[in-house]
Design a protein around this nucleic acid. Structure first.
Lengths: 338, 338
DNA sequence: TTGTAAGCGTTATCAG
DNA sequence: CTGATAACGCTTACAA
């Protein structure tokens, strides 16, 4: 039989409440008493039973991480950020891949909260799109924080990257290389991050005194294939762009393939730039110039905020922005003049 | 206040034990009694509290998934396989990225078991290498199952792919294309799966009556860079191979880059083949010919086995092999003769 | 500073 | 088939 708090109390010659106090670092325990208890704990190899604590406290000390269709890299970095943070606070994390649009999945999520399996949630896009679900959680008093949310109209807490500034910086860099016809493959229409990046692209053009040309813009769903098709279309123009800047790295990887398939040299004939800096960015050839979005930090910040919320504390801010930065690699070069 | 089993009992006019019986689908409940209880549950919107159940049963209904340094793709597919299976059985999954070689992490894993946070573990390579840890778990009576384990000397349960047959099949395919100088980039020396694949390669050569030439073999750590370097070395030989078969897709992707850097055409001058069929295999250009290792199924099978073990059942087998299959894409072609 | 006793919401025992 | 009543192992008023 595993030793319980009662065994420790007996062994140390104190009451169970005193042991509990020591376990929880509560004040009002004399030093020598504490020492005695610790000694007993050690001697017996006592480890507190989490289930009992959860029941008594009415808390799960667990948060749920919801994701769906997120790119592998995104979700793994997010997982690490969440896990490291929860662990540091004595919390556990429940991973929950799901399609929140399916009422079945949404029901399961609400059930997790009801069952006291989790105390709160971190949402990753596009799961945060399930407005109905978020409203239900809010009504139930279950806290949540959104990571790089798909939309940001509602006043719900979130953590995001400086997408607009990041895209502006990239575009400025491309302009500086001498490009004037910069193709752009934007992301899904209703995705806030994508809209912001697109705005950043426009900002830079405007600042440089260049006209925003809708003919140079395509739209994709952030997948590899979409990037390939969009680039293919751009390269087929009478006067194609000299560089293709994509809403994310996966589409940029697709664009790279399209360039090759068009029989063109990369980056001599056409440059390609991405966004996010996922590992794929280094694994294609030539390596992608991109904008780094610190997913780990975003996830850690979101989790930190959630835990503060759970503890009834007021976080310093209910929406946080974390800076991106430009990463120049080999897929971009000055335009080719012939 | 959330309704408890007591509220349901009162509402239905039965005892709490009867409610419990209904909740757990136990026999010996009259149909009309069961109906009354279910009606009350529905009316009150009752959801059982998991923490209480866990405490009372002395079980966590949770398994831990341990991983370290596994490739992103591997771990995410494994996660899905484990999650789907645990969910189907009413279990939860605790993700645990860790370096089991660090005693701190090992201690934490043992603590999770002691705290009754988890009932058992699924190990992914190379985490299963921590023999000491596994011995401790065995001594504590905590069950575990290893997925595609690094080594398989011990009699501990595991689930693996048919690595040897898979590599043999690939090699046979390459031979059939007409290649006779087949370069091979093997994996870490002490990794069983890698050794098996290497054996499969030798099997096919032997069957074809070809000599195994150690000069055509290099070793890598399964990372992109290692594949690049190994391929670079192979291509630098006086009489280089006409195809490079790598222990995994990441190294194969690296090999592709090396081929280009050598100024050679892929696959016209040199073919490249991988193993695993990770998404990267489709995202490089040209897409990789590879061997599919069904990680999701492996993970699901491992979890299934673990849950059976937890329930005191005897699984049909304590080691399972799941078949791989060849996937031909564009990175391989008949050898170029000049 | 410490201890007593009553929960927390289930499951399990055992008698009816 | 059903139901008191006692666990399960910890927290927490409330006393001392």
């Amino acid at each position: 039989m595993r030793p319980t708090i009662r065994d420790v109390a007996q062994n140390a010659g104190v009451s169970i409440k005193t042991v509990s106090r020591v376990l929880n670092d509560e004040p009002y325990v004399r030093e020598d008493t504490r020492a005695k208890v610790l000694a007993a704990i050690n001697e017996l190899g006592f480890v507190a039973n989490l289930s009992a604590k959860r029941l008594a406290k009415g808390q799960a000390f667990t948060i749920g991480l919801l994701f769906h269709n997120a790119s592998w890299h995104y979700i793994l970095d997010a997982q690490r950020g969440v896990l490291d943070t929860t662990r540091a606070h004595g919390y556990s994390t429940l991973m929950h891949p799901c399609d929140v649009a399916r009422s079945l999945d949404a029901r399961e999520i609400l059930a997790q909260a009801s069952q006291r399996l989790v105390d709160g949630f971190v949402f990753t896009p596009p799961a945060d799109n399930a407005t109905q679900l978020l409203e239900n959680l809010e009504a139930m008093g279950v806290p949540f924080v959104r990571m790089t949310p798909w939309e940001r109209e509602r006043e719900w807490p979130y953590v995001a990257a400086t997408d607009r500034a990041g895209a502006r910086e990239m575009t400025e860099y491309l302009l500086q290389l001498g490009h004037t016809r910069i193709g752009y493959v934007r992301g899904p229409a209703d995705q806030k991050a994508g809209a912001d990046r697109h705005d950043g692209y426009r900002d830079a053009l405007a600042t440089a005194g260049l006209r925003y040309d809708p003919d140079l813009v395509r739209q994709g769903d952030d997948q590899f294939e979409a990037g390939r098709e969009a680039a293919c279309s751009l390269l087929g123009m009478r006067e194609p762009p000299t560089v293709i800047f994509c809403n994310n790295d996966e589409m940029a990887a697709g664009a790279c393939v399209a360039v090759r398939e068009a029989g063109l040299l990369l980056p001599e004939d056409v440059s390609v730039a991405g966004f996010d800096d996922i590992p794929l960015a280094r694994q294609v050839w030539p390596a992608l110039t991109t904008v780094c979005q610190p997913i780990y930090d975003l996830a850690a910040a979101a989790t930190q905020m959630l835990i503060e919320l759970l503890n009834g504390q007021t976080p310093p801010a209910l929406s946080i922005e974390i800076p991106t930065h430009l990463i120049v690699r080999a897929s971009t070069a000055p335009p080719h003049h012939n």
